[in-house]
């Protein structure tokens, strides 16, 4: 027996934290931290559905696996892009406005 309030609240709080993290960070890498938190909130929701019994085709477990994998792939690409940006611009500050050099 488990009360569903806990998971739901945990998901909500994690998402809230993640959103705050995404909104507050200027460092491109640290933005990932916020995103991961939101994702984990989503994971908790998915798994909770499985725990609550509404679970066709074991979606509650399989979808999180997909999500984790996709997230990993995204992180790989993200870091590559961040590195490229760092190399090209010398900064990974998301607040940096487009300068004349950034103009196409």
């Amino acid at each position: 027996m488990i009360h569903l309030l806990g998971p739901y609240l945990l998901a909500a709080v994690l998402v809230g934290l993640g959103v705050a993290g995404v909104a507050v960070r200027r460092n491109a890498v640290l933005l990932l931290v916020g995103v991961e938190l939101v994702l984990s909130g989503g994971l908790v929701l998915l798994v909770t559905t499985q725990a609550a019994g509404a679970d066709r085709w074991a979606a509650g477990s399989v979808l999180p696996l997909f999500v984790v994998t996709v997230a990993a792939a995204e992180v790989v690409v993200a870091l590559a892009v961040v590195l490229a940006a760092f190399r090209a611009r010398g900064s990974i500050d998301l607040d940096a406005p487009a300068t004349a050099q950034d103009a196409p």
Binding site: A28, L39, G42, L46, E74, V82, L94, D102
Partner: peptide
Amino acid sequence: PATHGALGLLVTSLASFALLVLGAG
């Protein structure tokens, strides 16, 4: 310029992915 654009695209896509996952959940 390309990396500047790519950075914008990247962070937007990351945030959107998080939203999609949450929406799916």
